[in-house]
Amino acid sequence: MDVVNQLVATGQFTIVKQPLGFIKALQWIFAIFAFSTCGSYSGMFKMSVECKNRSESDLGIEVEFEYPFRLHQVYFDAPTCKGGNPERLFLVGDYSSSAEFFVTIGVFSFLYSMVALFAYIFVLEKYRENNKGAQIDFVVTAVFTFMWLVSSAAWAKGLSDVKTATDPDRVITLITACDEEENRCREVHDPKVSGLNTSVAFGFINLILWGGNLWFVFKETGWLGAFAGTYAQPSQEKQPAPDSFAQPGYGQEGYVQQDPYAGSQGGYQPEYGQQGGYEGGDYNQGGYEQQGGPTSFANQM
């Protein structure tokens, strides 16, 4: 308790409140739900065979099956309705590979999530040192995401086959006595497979959790910053180009200083001011007055 109180006081448990640690905790919980609902399953269905000779009938044939669903090893005894010993019949199918694969992925996911949570809480600084821990975490998370996809899909198909193989209406067709019209065969109790349906749902929930956690682990790897720097560098190199284009061409020697329409700073005002163009009395000293045009006109008047 002292260690826990110390961790709470130092704020190391705050990582669990962040998406990185919170989703990892959910992975740990839902992995338990996934492999426990599948690995601990046991089911049973019941049938009845009513022979023409009632003394040979069996109205309570129970067939039990369980994980890992090697149904070809599950058998039951059914009456022949012809006297003598009952016949022994076996179910059809072996679906242990998909079921065991699903449970194995769930167990390893549970163990890895527990180790990752331990690293987040107790050795977070070493986890983030040089980004090595985050990079390993990202690769392992990606592998488990793919494994949850494969195992959940395989177990969903395997569960569908298990339901078909344990359907009492289908199993009844294996009984020889049920081929005779005078004998009456029917199902009494269907197997309950709601727990198995839940295991498939938990499998796909784990797929979503592990896939969603990829983004938060990826941000810890440092690869995002490396990619951003790679794409930002070319744009920074192209920034001086407009400045070099503006300074020599148009900013200093172009249209600003050589604009003929600038009244007080252009080229025409100093030029006419010095040569007696348009300013003040210089106009009367220009070429028009020397030609005598206006004076001769006054004399004529």
Rank of each mutant, 00 (worst) to 15 (best):
V92N: 13
Y95Q: 07
S36K: 07
Q252R: 13
E62R: 12
A232K: 13
G225V: 11
I29K: 02
G280K: 13
A246L: 15
F45T: 02
A31P: 04
V150Y: 04
N183R: 02
V3L: 14
D169W: 10
S42N: 14
K238M: 12
E125F: 11
G273S: 14
S160H: 08
I23L: 11
G276F: 04
G212D: 05
G225A: 10
M47I: 10
C51G: 05
G39H: 02
F65Y: 10
Q291K: 13
G60H: 14
D161H: 07
V200G: 04
E271K: 11
S97K: 09
K126W: 15
Y95P: 00
A78F: 00
G292W: 04
S244L: 13
Q291P: 01
S199H: 00
G281Q: 10
F76M: 01
D77Y: 13
A156H: 04
V115G: 09
S244A: 12
K219G: 08
Q252M: 11
V171S: 01
A246D: 15
W28K: 05
A165W: 00
P168F: 00
A165E: 05
G21L: 01
G266F: 02
E87R: 08
L174G: 01
G39I: 07
E129W: 15
E125V: 14
A25R: 06
L224S: 12
V4S: 09
T37I: 00
T173V: 08
V162G: 00
Y231M: 14
F30C: 01
M147K: 07
W210F: 15
V103S: 06
A241V: 12
Y112C: 01
V217Q: 01
R184Q: 09
I23T: 03
